[in-house]
Design a protein around this nucleic acid. Structure first.
Length: 270
DNA sequence: AAAAGACACAACCGCATTGTC
DNA sequence: AGACAATGCGGTTGTGTCTTT
C-alpha cells in the first residue's frame, strides 16, 4: 500500500558518500545512464537507495555542475528571483546554469538572507514586500495623462507575439527547456480599462519556468510597450523592457534597475 | 591548546506531483 | 477512475570545519 519508504531496507547505507561510491555511480551512469533510479543502486552495486543516488548525482556529481563561490552576478540574480518567486529553488536554479537548487537554497540561508537583512535593516529575516503598489500607483498617475489612446492599435484580443504554439497559461511545452532564454508573450487588452487608460494587462510566460505566468502591466510607447508593473510579480516590477509589437523579447530585453523602482527621469518619454 | 559556539553544506525526510497500468 | 510507483521539490538535520574565548 502506498509509497515504499525510502531506505527502509536493512543494509542500505546512509550518510556521506565515499570516493569509491562516487566513482561507482559516475562510472555506471556514464556507461548506462541513470534510467530507473530505484533499480540503479542494485545494478551498479551500491548499497544505497535510488533516491540517495539521484540526489548525489544531481546535486554533486553531475559533470555540468559549477563548483566554487557564487559570483556577485549570481547572488544578485538569486536575490531578484527569490523576491519574485519565493522559495522556489528549482525555478531559481533553472536561471543559474551549473547551480543546483540545493546549493542555491544553502547559499540563501547561509549568506544572502543575512546579507539582505543587514543591508536593508529589515528586522524580519523573511525579506518583506517592497512598498511597490504605492509607488506603482504614483507612477501610473504621473504617466497616465501623457498617453495617447492605445485602442487604435489594439484589438480586443491582440497577440503581440507568441513564438510558441502554447496558448496563454498553457504550461506543458517547456518543462524541461530550462536552457532556453526566450520569453514569449501574448497580450490581451483589459476590457475594464477606459479609453484613456493606457495600461493593458499582459501575460508573460518565461520559458525558463513552466508555470511562470505573470500578470503584468504595460503602457504604450509609440509602437512598443513599456512594462511598469503588475500584480504578484515581486521584483519583476523592478524590470524595464520594451516589447515591440512585431517581435519577441529575450532576456537581453530585460534590464533590472538597481533601485526598487525606476525613477521618473529614468523612464523613456512617451 | 582545548572547549564551545558558529558556520557551511551535503544529505536525508516526507509530501506533492506525475506517470503508468 | 483509482491504485501504485517513480520522481521532484522544499524543509530540515547531521556533521565536519572554522572561529572565538
Amino acid at each position: 500500500m502506498g509509497r515504499a519508504p525510502c531506505c527502509e531496507k536493512m543494509g542500505l547505507k546512509k550518510g556521506p558518500w565515499t570516493k569509491e561510491e562516487d566513482d561507482i555511480l559516475i562510472n555506471y551512469i556514464n556507461q548506462n545512464g541513470h534510467g530507473n533510479w530505484r533499480a540503479l543502486p542494485k545494478k551498479a552495486g551500491l548499497l544505497r537507495c535510488g533516491k540517495s543516488c539521484r540526489l548525489r548525482w544531481t546535486n554533486y556529481l553531475r559533470p555540468d555542475i559549477k563548483r566554487g563561490n557564487f559570483s556577485k552576478e549570481e547572488e544578485d540574480t538569486i536575490i531578484h528571483l527569490h523576491h519574485a518567486l519565493g522559495n522556489r529553488w528549482s525555478a531559481i536554479a533553472a536561471r543559474l546554469p551549473g547551480r543546483t537548487d540545493n546549493e542555491i537554497k544553502n547559499v540563501w540561508h547561509t549568506h544572502l538572507k543575512k546579507k539582505l537583512v543587514k543591508q536593508s535593516a529589515i528586522p524580519d529575516p523573511q525579506i518583506s514586500e517592497t512598498p511597490r503598489p504605492a509607488k506603482l500607483d504614483q507612477y501610473r498617475h504621473e504617466t497616465a495623462g501623457g498617453e495617447d489612446s492605445i485602442r487604435s492599435s489594439l484589438s480586443t484580443e491582440m497577440s503581440i507575439h507568441d513564438q510558441s504554439n502554447s496558448p496563454p497559461h498553457s504550461s506543458s511545452s517547456s518543462n524541461d527547456d530550462v536552457s532556453s532564454s526566450n520569453i514569449t508573450t501574448s497580450c490581451t487588452s483589459n476590457s475594464n480599462t477606459t479609453e484613456n487608460d493606457a495600461e493593458m494587462s499582459c501575460l508573460l510566460l518565461n520559458n525558463l519556468n513552466e508555470d511562470f505566468w505573470l500578470d503584468l502591466d504595460f503602457v504604450s510607447c509609440e509602437n512598443s510597450w513599456k512594462f511598469i508593473g503588475g500584480e504578484d510579480v515581486g521584483d519583476y516590477c523592478n524590470s524595464s523592457f520594451i516589447i515591440n509589437n512585431s517581435s519577441s523579447i529575450s532576456d537581453d530585453d530585460i534590464n533590472f534597475w538597481s533601485d526598487p523602482f525606476p525613477r521618473a527621469e529614468e523612464l523613456p518619454q512617451f
